[in-house]
Amino acid sequence: MSVLDKLRLDGKVAVVTGAGRGLGRAMALALAEAGCDIVAAARTRSQIDETAGLVRDGGRRCLVVPTDITDPASVAAMVESAIAEFGRIDILLNNAGGATEGMGKPVEEITDREWHTGIDTNLSGTFYCCRAAIPHMLRQGGGKIINVTSGFGLRGGRDNFMYTSSKAGLINFTRSLAMTYAERNIQANLIAPGLFPHDNPAMVEWWRGGKFVPMGRLGRDEELGPLCVFLASDLSSYMNGDILALEGGGLAGGHAPTGFAPVVPLEADARRGEA
């Protein structure tokens, strides 16, 4: 089989949380293009209906399940309806997350409720989805879990606590998934998207068009598609517990402004290549 054929996902079923917009929608559509049927889960019915329309336009099936991932009962019901409809779950893409309550506050001002909402949305939600889906993957003989972390899972942020903590938590949660299920053919990995404004002009403005990103631009939603297909496919069969960060080079630097290059006066010997 040629290397490109291994990317095909025909006959597979992918559950995508947060599939109603932005990266979740882009990744759901990419998975569908590669051959997957999709279970589109998100809070807002109208948004996932729209995603489902696009999936069906491409000739794949799509089940729409309004879901609150912070509610374990809602997650369990979503996975049950996925199994009732398609009989299997091959790929679980835990994309939902991002709670903004309490963001921009220093620690001493964060309420209990803001803390728990942030951790529940980004970390507990992924745990609930994994807990519900993994038994089906084990029964089938394997599966792929893709969790979505962030550069803020690897680095800190000023006045950014629930998001950084939960995204960092996801990284080690995923490593433990890898340790636990590697022998049973479940691979769990992470995507870390950089700054993706989802075509929202206000966000482009807020991030100054990505001027400070080493590559000089922001991410485009559709760029997450191929990466997600790679992680869902047989091409990534030995990748487990690992992160694929698509972010224009920010994590390679970060200690100094983009483009900063000190000019150190060289000793005469060094200039002659004799140092």
Partner: peptide, 8 residues
């Protein structure tokens, strides 16, 4: 597909 991937 990997145009935005660098330094990783």
């Amino acid at each position: 597909a990997a145009e935005y991937l660098t330094g990783q």
